[in-house]
Design a protein around this nucleic acid. Sequence first.
DNA 1: ACGATCGTGAAGTCACGGTTAACGATCCGG
DNA 2: CCGGATCGTTAACCGTGACTTCACGATCGT
Lengths: 297, 297
Amino acid sequence: MLERHEIEAFLAVAEELHFGRAAERLRVSTARISQTIRKLERRVGVPLFNRTSRRVELSSVGRRFEEDLRPAWDRVGDALTRAVETGRGFAGTLRVCFTGAAGGQLLVGVTELFRERHPECSVEIREAQMAELMPWLRDGVVDLALATFPVDEPSIVSGPVLVSEARLLAVPVGHRFAARDALSIEDLAGVTLLGLPDTLPESLRADRTPTVTPSGRTIRHGRSAATFQEMLTMVGAGEGVFTVGASVRRYYTRPDVAYVPLHDAPPLQWGLLWRADSATARVRGFNEAARELASTP
Amino acid sequence: MLERHEIEAFLAVAEELHFGRAAERLRVSTARISQTIRKLERRVGVPLFNRTSRRVELSSVGRRFEEDLRPAWDRVGDALTRAVETGRGFAGTLRVCFTGAAGGQLLVGVTELFRERHPECSVEIREAQMAELMPWLRDGVVDLALATFPVDEPSIVSGPVLVSEARLLAVPVGHRFAARDALSIEDLAGVTLLGLPDTLPESLRADRTPTVTPSGRTIRHGRSAATFQEMLTMVGAGEGVFTVGASVRRYYTRPDVAYVPLHDAPPLQWGLLWRADSATARVRGFNEAARELASTP
DNA sequence: ACGATCGTGAAGTCACGGTTAACGATCCGG
DNA sequence: CCGGATCGTTAACCGTGACTTCACGATCGT
């Protein structure tokens, strides 16, 4: 029987008529698409695409295969969507998680508003460690996550920005930067930046741990931390520095870490994330509440 | 999106209403079914089955999910079947492989008859090494394989028995058995039996390399060989013995190996194998030719 | 109360879905 | 007609998650 990745590879190539673009859309390498299509063709016994290195077109068998397969596969998707929809009406539980810092605080307000409107839906709020965020979303452990942007992942949707806050640099108290009133991004060229867990999206890691300053000077990278507390401990121990949002000043005051404003850094943006195929009534409702709360301070 | 194994696990449990039987049908462990269903339920957000350790029944969401999913998934299967059918009309190529010994000889006759009837279909015959047999069938490298029975694999179909031949024991020429006129299966208790590649089906390996004699005495097992020639070389080198069909006397005569009849062993049976989802017109036609040739010697 | 049956959870293993890199073919502009 | 650009294919290697095994607790019948 056909594997999901075979079906999606075939349908993507059939639509794009281009291995490279199909690969890009599915977020895999072109080589993988080529291998998958070839295996499929060996099983079917005849080429599904007539192709040179310059042109790709459906063969007659391929065209018929697409006509049969696409609606069938769409219906499989619909079956899941409907199950998720009905399985998650407003009656039930909405599971939301947040990471570190200001997350929890913001959620309290949103949850209050949401509960008021949908008293039949119970809301569970949990803290996720940085490394757990994406796995939890992917595996359905939670329906929504409050996190920092940008998150550019396939099948994960980002809501609007709910909160923007200034960026600070967390440095050891003894560090030469600790006494400064403000720092520039350019100053990062002189320090070691601690890393984020590699389960986090590449887009987010690129934003929080850039490799070069705007003027092109390279930024050194240090070890990665799995949790936010771990990160601060490493900063306190002098292993490196890290950019954080202004709210950590209220929630993570420590004797060994100082927070210095990065005056020319763009603000740190927070918002909700959810699985594209779990955009249920509850999720939409919670988003609505969050948006309103953010727009009417 | 849903993975193939998730879809099949859900549909199997929905039909059997029993994790154990569903697992058995899909040839996986019960634990795997349990894990898969649980993950599915976390994504949907609500149980698909109401279950205790004694009873399993579909929840309302589960019932609806099955109603939507089963026809959709069936249509995916149909799409593949049709592609395979049309991709493999009589016009085209039929790829057949055989393993060792008498295989090739038998196929010559069948192929002649098949070509006579379907001159528009070209036939390619290749030898497969023992270890390659199942992978080739599974991956669609060949459409048909001539091999020894019993082959009890999911999604592989066995045709009727085409040839039966007496079993011989291949032993080193210097071995005490080499001079005997005949041996009994019970004699295997005193020797080391060489093994078959572990890509071959368990059913076949159990038949060719049993672990106990009929009377219950255990049979020692030795190393495994990947090819038939390798097997005979190991026999010649005194590493162990192996049961073969009578036809090897004609095709694999060697100075270092003697073949002694196993008078009380059931005959070795040969027949064709093919993928259940590749039972095309060509495959059926070749089978027909084979059956006729076998029944009218 | 006991054994039998069954689903679940944790821990460990390995096939296979995936990558990277080098390559050969096709087409285009100069 | 050549050099470069684009694209699909292939080989070799790698890490993850689909699997297994094992131990356990729950739920029946007798």
